[in-house]
Nucleic acid binder design. Structure first.
Length: 276
DNA sequence: ACTGGCTCCTGAGGGC
DNA sequence: TGCCCTCAGGAGCCAG
């Protein structure tokens, strides 16, 4: 489901409700996710206070007394706050209840997500230690992107979706960023100029920030921690619009598959050869 | 060391 | 109505 703006939105919506609360119980209904949910969580979480909720790429980190819960939502995962006596949903594989009568519930129909536990600094955990830079951080610069891109043989779109280089950009936002920068998605990453990198960095920040401000993109069932839908889907210019008119030049938008993912672009605005 | 392709899983939607 | 096929917001793994 979620890319950076959706994960960020979820973190913000959860924080106001449960940070500072103490866990009283943890339940695992179906441990079978991408990696099994550690059974020991049922024993070790009760009694621990939730201190902070942070985000690392598309990972959500719940910092408690003795360690950190690392949560990934995969394609269809969701985290929501519900009353602790709520009816357990069909795909609600895990939940934690707090001392004030609320529960944090993890649902994931496709079970591509993950719930992990570490007692070390989370940045040392295998899923986090190799993550690239945050696109909204100062570290993400034209120079950084250009240096990484020139050494790669993949397309620019795959580069943007490579979490070891930049974290948090998935298929929707990669499509939107390339449209905004008028770059043909199949262009080789190595052919992207420093000026184009500057533009990619600028537009990435702009699009991701705007998406966060609108609570993320709800295509089907994504909601934040309080069950509220996002509205950034209204601003999507290419994703999900194959065959429709380009908002810029009215040319019919085209679709190709890159690395098994649908890629929508404007054949006129995002020309294969450099403009000019 | 890279790269592309496959895979995990469920559900929705289209065509027949 | 129902069956079959395709597609879906992610990312780890493996062969080449």
């Amino acid at each position: 489901m979620p890319e950076l703006p959706e994960v960020e939105t979820i973190c913000r919506s959860l924080g106001t409700k449960i940070v500072g609360q103490t866990m009283v119980a943890a339940r695992i209904k179906n441990a079978k996710l991408r990696q099994p949910i550690p059974r020991k969580l049922v024993k070790i979480l009760p009694g621990q206070q939730l201190h902070r909720i942070t985000r690392c790429g598309k990972y959500i980190l719940l910092h408690v007394d003795l360690g950190t819960l690392i949560i990934h939502l995969g394609m269809s995962g969701n985290l929501q706050i519900k009353p602790s006596n709520h009816e357990i949903g069909k795909h609600e594989h895990f939940n934690v209840t707090f001392d004030d009568g609320l529960a944090l519930c993890y649902s994931d129909p496709r079970r591509f997500g993950a719930i992990l536990w570490t007692e070390k600094p989370p940045s040392q955990h295998g899923v986090l230690k190799n993550l690239g830079c945050e696109p909204l951080s100062q570290e993400f610069t034209a120079e950084f992107l250009w240096q990484r891109a020139r050494a790669k043989r993949c397309s620019i779109k795959q580069l943007l979706m490579d979490n070891k280089i930049v974290t948090g950009i998935g298929n929707i936002y990669a499509n939107e960023i390339l449209f905004a920068t008028q770059i043909y998605p199949l262009r080789s990453a190595a052919s992207i100029t420093k000026e184009e990198c500057r533009n990619i960095v600028k537009e990435s920040r702009k699009i991701l920030r705007l998406a966060i401000r609108h609570g993320g993109t709800t295509l089907k069932d994504y909601t934040d921690g309080k069950g509220k839908r996002g509205s950034f889907q209204r601003y999507l210019k290419v994703y999900g619009r194959a065959g429709k008119e380009c908002t810029n030049c009215q040319t019919k938008l085209a679709m190709v598959r890159i690395g098994q993912r649908s890629t929508v672009f404007c054949p006129r605005c995002q020309r294969q050869e450099a403009a000019g």
